[in-house]
Design a protein around this nucleic acid. Structure first.
Length: 302
RNA sequence: GGCGAGAUAGCUCAGUUGGUAGAGCACACGACUGAAAAUCGUGGUGUCCCCGGUUCGAGUCCGGGUCUCGCCA
């Protein structure tokens, strides 16, 4: 009997353009051949947005025909989204699939979203818009003073944050003022998960990945990514939607810059992957999706 | 052909009165708990075009080449 055995969840991580979707589809087809059903749960900060499907590389209708994918293209571009909001939805999807006897294939390139989907992180409370606005203004008026205030209020939190890290200094002040105390948490690298999980990291030889990224960016432009971005911009896209690689670049008609920044992003994803405990890395430079899928399932000891 | 300007990091360029070179971008490595496709930290990766000269010492001064750009023929 094909059973999940010790592993209930399959997770697939990897840098952008490495071919995660194709591998997820191949894995699902292999499972189906064994009589098991699978559904993908996306963990991608930009693919959640409705109206940025081309730019974010979300699964197409044809791809979804082969593997149903949840948590893509469902948030209006005007809304902000976050790891916390995503985690709640992802937990719900994963638990629902497991309860129905379907294998969840958690797939995506946003490391923090992946981790918070697989684990039960002790996240600090969500940001309050007014407080964040006030603290941002405070920081921008005098970064040194804001930093000093954080050091006074929460030395342990401050110690973990680089002096020039605007984003984190503001967030830390936000947490402290919200009563979060001075006990910073880091459960990112513990490897603890909510369900037994086989975590796969797809890698690719650097030059090959760079070439794929360039081709992919060109294809996105070809497929109308610039138009998508202009529409989202006109619709009043949220700060988080605007973080999409290519958003600002395509508005400025600079596709080359988009490819460069995408490459830099891929590098950071690889850094995250190397740090991730328990991840099984598979180099997909030469393999077809089905060969890779076999490797994914073979290594599972099924 | 003549005159002028230039040649320094992968790219664009700085480089004081001579003391074996440094910015931005790119690149590499890293950090990462509700903005994470975000944010941030660290690192110079070099036949200073070539040959010779002056000098204790030349990216820098002198001579001769080579190449590039501009103007004039």
């Amino acid at each position: 009997m094909a059973s999940c055995g010790a592993m209930d969840v399959i997770a697939i991580f990897g840098p952008t353009a490495v071919g995660k979707t194709a591998v997820a589809i191949a894995v699902a087809e292999h499972l189906r051949a064994e009589g098991q059903q699978a559904v993908a749960v996306s963990v991608d900060a930009i693919q959640v947005y409705k109206g940025l499907e081309v730019l974010s590389g979300a699964a197409t209708a044809a791809e979804q025909q082969r593997l149903e994918t949840r948590l893509i293209s469902f948030v209006p571009v005007t809304e902000t989204w976050s790891a916390g909001s995503h985690a709640a939805r992802a937990h719900q999807e994963i638990d629902g699939l497991l309860a129905a006897g379907v294998v969840p294939i958690v797939v995506g390139g946003t490391g923090l979203y992946l981790r918070s989907a697989l684990a039960e992180l002790s996240l600090a409370p969500p940001p309050d818009a007014a407080l964040r606005a006030r603290l941002t203004a405070e920081y921008d008026a005098d970064p040194g003073a804001a930093r000093a205030r954080l050091e006074a209020l929460a030395p342990a939190r401050a110690a973990a944050i680089a002096p020039g890290d605007r984003h984190r200094v503001i967030r830390a002040l936000e947490i402290v003022e919200g009563g979060g105390g001075d006990r910073p948490q880091n459960e990112l690298w513990t490897g603890v998960t909510r369900h037994p999980t086989r975590l796969i990291g797809l890698t690719m030889e650097r030059d090959a990945l760079r070439a794929r990224i360039e081709r992919r960016c060109a294809a996105m432009v070809e497929a109308g990514a610039a138009d998508e971005v202009r529409k989202a911009d006109a619709a009043g896209a949220s700060v988080t939607a605007r973080r999409a690689l290519g958003f600002a670049e395509l508005l400025a008609d600079d596709p080359e810059r988009m490819a460069t920044r995408t490459s830099q992003y891929a590098r950071r994803q690889m850094t995250w992957m190397r740090r991730t405990p328990g991840i099984v890395q598979i180099d997909v430079t030469a393999g077809t999706p089905h060969e890779v899928a076999t490797a994914v399932l073979d290594r599972s000891g099924r």
